[in-house]
Design a protein around this nucleic acid. Sequence first.
DNA 1: CTCCAGGGATGAT
DNA 2: ATCATCCATGGA
Length: 310
Amino acid sequence: MTLNSGQVFHWEKVGAGFCGTIGESAVYVEQLGNVLQTKMEGGVVRRRAQHQLFRKAPRPTTGATAGSRELAPPSVARVVARYFALDHPLEEICSSFPRDPIMNAARGFCRGLRIIRQPKWECLATFICSSMKQVTHIRQISRALRQRFGEKKEIGGDEVFSFPSPSRLAQTSENELRKCGLGYRAKNLLETAKVITSGQADLDSWSPLSDRKLRKQLCELPGVGMKVANCVMLFAFERIAAFPIDVWIERVLREKYFVRKRKVTGQMLADFAANYFGAHGGYAQQYLFHHARMTGKRKSQRSHSIDQFH
DNA sequence: CTCCAGGGATGAT
DNA sequence: ATCATCCATGGA
């Protein structure tokens, strides 16, 4: 559910799990009940990410990695556990959501969904490409950028591609980027890649900034407005109060929280969201988004992904 | 075919 | 501050 909730766009369903990349590492992940299994590029099952996906504490599965002699690559399980934010206290977070019918439905529907810790540049670049695009289109763009400009990796017989660095994309041209289906977004992605490459903007150095200052810095990048900035803050800077408002969320807010009210401006929606959904508003927003998208008007559950979650 | 999508930049009220 | 337009692309 997490991988299909519109946070990341490059994971591909393979067998019972997913293939993708975390940074430069090719990874296979597969959820087995309460356990998240991982494989690395060698294709060998190395470890199981220790965690509690759900409330009930699983029996400690000690000795799951019998092959102690084979030196495991630097803690795959930890990389995976961090990426999937298995340390987030889901129980606390969900309890902090407001108790209204809409939020209750979303909370129940999205049980187990987590906000992923994404690499900053990858997240920023992908969401610059996301404007006025459907999730399936964003997946296509991500795939095209990775295949053309990323580095090929292999995992369990499947090939995956890492996301191209800022300097790699800065070396391309607007025309080359347009071939990836970017349209008018190509210029924005190219210009932002150049700004990052030149050192004029340094994403990592922005981590200590306050939410307000970080948002301001992000919005100065070409192709980054309030919505994209909030997505990057939420998905890559661990600012779980950030509340991105896209067309789906705006629809939910207007139809469910501002029923039959006219002259509701975007600023009013943003102010309401910041005050109403609380310190973990970003989590609430993601739950509302995924719930609306999966159960909304658009009949999408027909041929793809019948049910890969219970 | 038409409709619309995890918007942003610009210019006019 | 708020609103109107335009910007490309392709799945549904």
